[in-house]
Design a protein around this nucleic acid. Structure first.
Lengths: 237, 237
DNA sequence: GTTGCTTTGTCGCGGCGCTGACAGTCGCTC
DNA sequence: GAGCGACTGTCAGCGCCGCGACAAAGCAAC
């Protein structure tokens, strides 16, 4: 149990890095029953899916691409909370008691997603125990990631946090297996900075150092992770 | 809507500070059906309810007292995640895919709680849609609080974070109405420090300053909040 | 009382990283 | 190609706050 040795797992186990997929474990007839209530939607890289203050009427399930979730601090600074991967749900605060969005969702790639009205999705949740269980798992998983982030921000240096982030993003992607050690993170330095709670300038310096050591490769608005293992050793200084 | 003006609300509304109660909105026959599956348990102040590495087999619902939830960073430092108030659930990671506890729960008062086996509670969740909905609300609520904390830690000074914390703890308590502006927070300086991600020494300094200004009153292992409004103005420097 | 542990109070040092400023570069649009 | 905005690179300055050290004061147990 504990730690899975091989990354080749179609149905993600507990301790594996790959994230919980909302629809894993569902039969095809259940799936089609679910998607019958959804409309598909696509947006292009950089577009905002919703912003603070928007009416919260829908929940989204990501089919393709990645989405950045962030909040705006009172001083106006953007603080990124999480990067959503395909198969995950987002905007689900609409389900509880949010009438207006308190955070912000932005497409990092060209994205494709299902959109459900909160009403429809609530009904699906209550009528499909398996779905409801997946949902609870997924949300719990995300919370555990937030706990880790909280712990990292208060106890680790900026360079270590950057390595953690890149490592986590690389291994949690569903596409990880296909692209192997060349996973491309679609983030600007500013994005990385806001994800780890640091200044853009400090982030730039660390990223350049990582590139000089041949661990990553920098592009404009993207980072290619070349060697996962070295990321970890670098993080330890 | 937005912000509720009066604190006198028995059934907490969306934007109100008081936290979601897991059992609010349930009928008495549903309640007794639920508690039939639980055993009661009590622990005294300071005791650990569970620790990292323990087998995760139960979930807890707090009846009386307060509980501190924290994680241990790799360097061994304790990082407090949240303070659990009566009516809330904790240890619910056991429901998803946690076989061993990754965090730590400690009683801040003498506490009284219900204990459910994860199996029983899962069955309750799937058979009682109302309960399941409450659960989803409560967990969502907690996540929103974590997002706020994340944002605060990276964008606010230590003094402001302390004020935010004291204010939040004072107003989110179910006992708030009875004790009015004299809510007592059962935390040591060290506890406060770990909740806001700061050093104990810095925390002590700020707390003393707050006491000198007559905003709070310090006891050994406890803080009495005397004036909520001044907390907010102090936070703004 | 004495012993011992936990909590609190205070100080100085040093460094990480935030801030502000500015230049260079890339990619887009017209 | 000209212009413009977003992104990247770098540096000097400095301030907040973490850290180590130590003393005092409660509290508990005996």
């Amino acid at each position: 149990m504990g730690v899975a040795a091989s990354p080749v797992v179609t149905f993600p186990g507990p301790r594996h890095n790959q994230r919980v997929q909302l629809f894993s474990g569902l039969g095809s007839e259940e799936l089609s029953r679910i998607t019958a209530h959804a409309r598909s939607s696509r947006q292009t890289r950089g577009e905002f899916i919703y912003m603070p203050g928007d009416r919260a009427e829908c929940v989204y399930i990501l089919k393709r691409g990645r989405v950045k979730l962030s909040v705006l601090s009172e001083s106006g600074k953007e603080i990124a909370i999480d990067i959503i991967q395909p198969g995950e749900i987002f905007g689900e605060f609409a389900l509880v008691d949010e009438s207006q969005r308190s955070n912000l969702a932005q497409a990092l790639d060209d994205v494709l997603m299902w959109v459900f009205s909160k009403h429809d999705f609530t009904k699906l949740l209550t009528s499909l125990p398996k779905l409801s269980f997946s949902y609870i798992r997924l949300v719990g998983d995300r919370r555990r990631r937030m706990e880790k982030k909280l712990s990292d921000i208060t106890s680790k240096a900026v360079s270590a946090r950057i390595c953690e982030l890149l490592h986590e993003l690389s291994t949690s992607s569903v596409e990880f297996e296909t692209t192997a050690t060349n996973y491309i993170v679609p983030l600007t330095h500013q994005d990385v900075a806001s994800l780890i709670g640091a200044a853009r300038q400090t982030t730039t310096t660390v990223l350049n150092d990582l590139e000089r050591r041949g661990i990553i490769e920098l592009g404009r608005g993207s980072i290619r992770v070349k060697c996962l293992k070295q990321l970890q050793t670098y993080a330890a200084f």
